[in-house]
């Protein structure tokens, strides 16, 4: 499958990674090479093969609906980029 510069620019927007024109060009070349190599997966007959989602070794489990953590306000705030009193503040994310 061919991966053109326009697609790379679109993917970069979806991934929210700012790329310069030059970077779009260089990534396009590399990604094209990698995807070309990945295309060998098309040789594999996957008819009726289920997708593997995780290794299936762990038992799904339920727990009591109890609070297991909490009372650690200062710890939570310790990595806040900004705070106002006991509140964690961030730039406006709802436009």
């Amino acid at each position: 499958m061919s991966l053109d510069a326009k697609t790379v620019a679109k993917i970069a927007r979806l991934a929210r990674i700012g790329l310069s024109e030059d970077e779009v060009q260089s990534h396009q070349k590399e990604m094209q090479g990698i995807i070309g190599w990945v295309d060998q997966l098309n040789e594999v007959d996957v008819t009726d093969v289920p997708p593997m989602i995780g290794t299936g070794l762990a038992e799904p489990r339920l727990r009591e609906d109890n609070v297991t953590d909490g009372n650690c306000r200062d710890k939570v705030l310790s990595n806040a980029p900004d705070r106002e009193g006991p509140f964690y503040t961030v730039p406006k994310v709802v436009e």
Partner: peptide, 14 residues
């Protein structure tokens, strides 16, 4: 074409 196929190939590898 890519993700789902890769997961199927993963089943075959296992």
């Amino acid at each position: 074409a890519y993700y789902l196929r890769a997961q199927k190939v993963r089943t075959l590898l296992q």
